[in-house]
């Protein structure tokens, strides 16, 4: 799975929890879930759970702590996919 596929999958998930259509349309690695997409912090958990289901990975607390923007989240997904591939 390449970065673009991950980003597309992530955008589909995020779209369920934001009303900031403009920020979603212009999503980039720099997009911040709270500052730009105005996602409620209690919905960050939903995003983490949705990512786990969609990409079939487990996200530990340490990784979850970083997941406040697109860049960090894509990196976590890439790392966890690589861990799965190595098993």
């Amino acid at each position: 799975m390449d970065k673009q596929e991950i980003l597309t999958g992530l955008r589909d998930i995020i779209s369920l929890y934001t009303e900031e259509q403009d920020a979603l349309d212009h999503i980039s690695e720099q997009t911040d879930f709270i500052a730009d997409l105005k996602i409620n912090s209690a919905n960050l958990v939903d995003i983490v759970l949705d990512i786990e289901e969609k990409f079939n990975i487990n996200i530990d607390n340490e990784s979850m702590a970083k997941m406040l923007n697109v860049k960090a989240t894509v990196e976590v997904i890439e790392d966890k996919l690589a861990e799965n591939a190595g098993k």
Binding site: A42, D46, V48, L49
Partner: peptide
Amino acid sequence: VVDLKLARRRNNWRRANYLSKIF
């Protein structure tokens, strides 16, 4: 502050694994 009406509508804490991720 948590608006309980909004939380009821937007946040399903009964979702599987939700609480164990945060509590």
